[in-house]
Design a protein around this nucleic acid. Sequence first.
DNA 1: TCCCTCATGGGAGTCTACTGTCATTATCCA
DNA 2: TGGATAATGACAGTAGACTCCCATGAGGGA
Lengths: 203, 203
Amino acid sequence: MNAKETPAAPEMGLRERKKLRTMETIRREAYRLFAAQGYEATTVDQIADAAEVSPSTFFRYFPTKEDVVLDDDYDDTLAAALRSRPPGEPVIESLRHGLADSLGRQLEADREDLLLRTRLGFTDPALRARSWDEMQRSQDVVAALICERTGRDPGDLDAHCAAAALIAVSTAVVRYWVEHDGKVDLVPLYDRQFAQLAAGLRL
Amino acid sequence: MNAKETPAAPEMGLRERKKLRTMETIRREAYRLFAAQGYEATTVDQIADAAEVSPSTFFRYFPTKEDVVLDDDYDDTLAAALRSRPPGEPVIESLRHGLADSLGRQLEADREDLLLRTRLGFTDPALRARSWDEMQRSQDVVAALICERTGRDPGDLDAHCAAAALIAVSTAVVRYWVEHDGKVDLVPLYDRQFAQLAAGLRL
DNA sequence: TCCCTCATGGGAGTCTACTGTCATTATCCA
DNA sequence: TGGATAATGACAGTAGACTCCCATGAGGGA
């Protein structure tokens, strides 16, 4: 998921403001096309056309087509959110709050955009690899937190499995949210499913 | 993961035996090259060369390069394994046995091959999308089983979250196995981690 | 205002997955 | 053994991602 671009600080010149605008336009048009036709079916030329730039310019802004859709710092956000929780708290609680916080903020800011991007991540084959990577990274962040708090060494299997379960559940919740067009409230869903996990999945 | 090809039933003619052998050769050489240079870096021409066929022939056997690495029926196997368990059993138990069975069989048959393919699925960016899909399908199979056994409707979030957690844990276990070069015993790891899940991840 | 820098467009070119066609060669069957 | 059938190879061709290069024109500083 993409961090929102810092919107045109006043102290920068026309040149840089134009560059920012161009980048935003390219990204916006790309997402629009991806949503309408799928990622693979959308060519760089189409994106460039829609954004009214040349294909050369597209590649000056984004080294590859995939990069249009990349978000490097989601797990940093998550890590930060987690670190702000009291160290004595059960990990599952920290994560519940951490996710609610970071997602909540994004939801208020960009609801439609978030929904669109998340849906793309689930539905478009070529983008699922990306989502998987993000999931893995989040999982590693959570595993690291667990190890840190409980004094295990970083490769500990228990920690990684717990992290995997937690992240998988939150992903499943988000998937449910996407499949219901964002018309359900995320946070109570999280609460319930995390509680189920803590209770040991009696099924 | 690919099902092992049924190895040349005696009743088929030379033609078909040759076809099977060609297909196996292509796949084997492809995996060898993927392991050595990565998936993206390996071209179809290289695979064809290594398998001593023309590129045309490659595409006659595999519609796309990705298909070389595809396994359509892993989740069928899983579903079958699950269905063979007594319906009264807790789902977590069924899955534990189902996975141990199906994996156990593959382990005895193709240990090295399985390790190689699984590792590729984790490490190669372009193949991770595949792995994700397989995970999702397995997850849906498990979710379906849960719904079936507990009389929920198929979209039920509780069921999907439970399935997600279970599959995520088994994936994490397999990942650990791969990262330790297959030198640890899978089954006891499964047992322990599933037990942790059932106990509610007290961390 | 003048010059410098830098974003841009255009075009030519590469690489690789993938398609389609046709002649050749190997198996199969009567 | 001979004719039908099926597998193959060679070749030409398309499409799309990505690179390189060069001319042009729009900001920006003096």
